[in-house]
Design a protein around this nucleic acid. Structure first.
Lengths: 337, 337
DNA sequence: CTGAAAGCGCTTACAG
DNA sequence: CTGAAAGCGCTTACAG
């Protein structure tokens, strides 16, 4: 405010009034001040007002953990771990659920312009344009559970590539030769990396890669679509997530195909769908705790020293063995295409 | 701080040092200051430090809405609506997920002692002891989706009583005479009120109330238990929530009983389990939007004027008609006991 | 070990 | 319409 005032040769009182649309400033001057504020990238200091007013303009919302329950989404669980680690460091997490419109219209959280936070953690892939917008913010930021090849962002991600590789290896070891991958390769980096891990396993075992066995599960905006099964069914499916695996199992079952006797299915994420499926899914569990801890500690280091950068940090996942995989049915020489 | 300093005849600098465990204060004095601070109910002014340091000690966590997805828990959805209304009023919501241990050991969120918020909204029933603890906080508070008969708290709740009454009426109108209620009456006030609404419908239609048709679904801590079906099956079940209805439908189906042909089932909440069930559940949808709006506006009025009180505010629910109800099977005079 | 002074960035009440 | 002054509650750097 002082800077704006000096530049315009007015007092900070006038600037304050203008920015708050209060009386006592001429309309013309008000406009000029507002424009300059934007130009100079001025952000309101909420703490100063808080102190003055004796109000924080924050409301605590308490939800008992048990009500966020087993159905809680993966990211809510991650958020919970993040806040835990933040609290240990004397910090708080303010959750901002970014809605579809704001993402499309490239609108930053008001949290930012109100200067309510020292940094941002973005949890879950956003559009390329939104990544760039986030990058333009003048505070440290960390990206969690995704990365972008083209931007130089600090991110913490599960090592999807190796996890999918290992998971596919499990299937190969069980004698499977015709293995499908289910996921839209152009949707998220996670899905891509998991696909590549799957592919690496095929390569390593000298199994042919059949484009007809790469099945689409969603459009590019993430909405699920009906999965088109190939005419000649594979003996195993590597699904990019448990939810899709769940849907696939339902579909197979409704077609009279037994899982895992006739067809093995593996998922990813170890979320509610993994245990909700019948049979329960063999899948990969993301190390939520480790991811949250890494993200928080990196963030705090960046707050201390904004020039620090971490690049892409990988966190290992763990395979959870359940009941959706069995040995491949006796070979009928399918694999020879 | 000043007050503490005056009372002890020292300076506020000394108090600051003592409270922050910094050097430059004798151990003895430090102790005395800390004890007095607690006695006087001193709470740290985080805004003042923020201003001084230029740090807010908050981190924004951004989660794209689509990733909180359809599986998101009911309360997360409510939280989202709450923050929306808060933002419209220049406020922010800080989510605190209260874990089981803190609730049992009666530990308040650090948010409170750090003076990071102007008030609290408690979303979801907590223990009587915790309610009292919350009540003891020196800021406005609102309770959402539950109330306590014995405490004089401001709460916003769905009109469970009438919704259950109307839902049971639907069953009666379809010719059902032997209708069971599923839920532990001693678990939450919602379950109790829904039961009473069910009972009112029975009374009004002169149907006998059979204690054997009140089925337990969980222990008092909320953990689900196997539902004990009565020997003579009712023709309809009013379940206290969709999740239990979902479990019940699965159980009935596995026993070879067709829903709704042989047995109708209704749920409550219209959450993910309502559409996940086969058949999809007829249920009651809570008016999340209205509840969130009421809670936020009441809260802000209380911040303006702490002596305001609202008591119990009811918000109507809507019945959602789906496929889990049909006319009662032809009577075999079961109802005569 | 203790404290007086300055300052963080804003707003409010008042004077011009 | 504009601005000088005071103050919100803390911490830091410095003097004693």
């Amino acid at each position: 405010m002082r800077d704006i005032a000096d530049k315009l040769g007015v007092s900070s009182v006038t600037v304050s009034k203008a920015l708050n649309d209060k009386d006592g400033v001429s309309g013309e001057l008000k406009e000029k001040i507002k424009v300059l504020a934007v130009q100079m990238g001025y952000r309101y200091n909420a703490a100063a007002r808080s102190m003055k007013e004796g109000l924080t303009h924050n409301i605590g919302v308490i939800i008992p953990e048990r009500f966020t329950g087993p159905t809680q989404s993966f990211y809510v669980r991650v958020f919970q771990r993040i806040t835990k680690h933040l609290e240990d460091q004397g910090y708080y997490g303010i959750l901002h659920i970014l809605n579809v419109e704001d993402e499309e219209e490239l609108i930053l959280p008001k949290l930012y312009s109100d200067n309510k936070v020292d940094g941002f953690i973005v949890l879950g892939q956003v559009s390329k344009e939104y990544i760039e917008l986030v990058q333009s913010m003048d505070v440290p930021k960390m990206f969690l559970d995704f990365y972008d090849e083209h931007s130089d962002i600090d991110s913490v991600v599960t090592d999807n590539f190796y996890a999918a590789y290992e998971l596919t290896n499990v299937l190969v070891q069980q004698g499977h030769r015709r293995i499908a991958y289910v996921g839209n390769l152009y949707s998220t980096s996670s899905i891509q990396d998991r696909f590549l891990g799957y592919y690496k396993s095929l390569l390593e075992h000298r199994l042919p890669m059949d484009q007809n066995l790469v099945l689409n599960d969603r459009d590019e905006r993430g909405t699920f679509i009906e999965i088109d099964l190939p005419e000649q069914l594979p003996t195993a499916f590597v699904c990019n997530c448990d939810q899709v695996a769940h849907l696939l199992v339902q579909k197979l079952t409704s077609l009279g195909i037994q899982v895992p006797a006739q067809c093995s299915v593996v998922g990813f994420d170890n979320d509610i769908y993994a245990t909700l499926s019948e049979p329960k899914l063999t899948t990969v569990e993301v190390d939520v705790e480790q991811m949250a801890r890494t993200a928080v500690h990196s963030m705090l280091k960046k707050i201390d020293n904004p020039s620090r950068s971490f690049g892409r940090v990988h966190v290992k996942g763990n395979i959870i063995y359940r009941d959706s995989v069995s040995a491949a049915p006796a070979l009928s020489d399918d694999a020879s295409n």
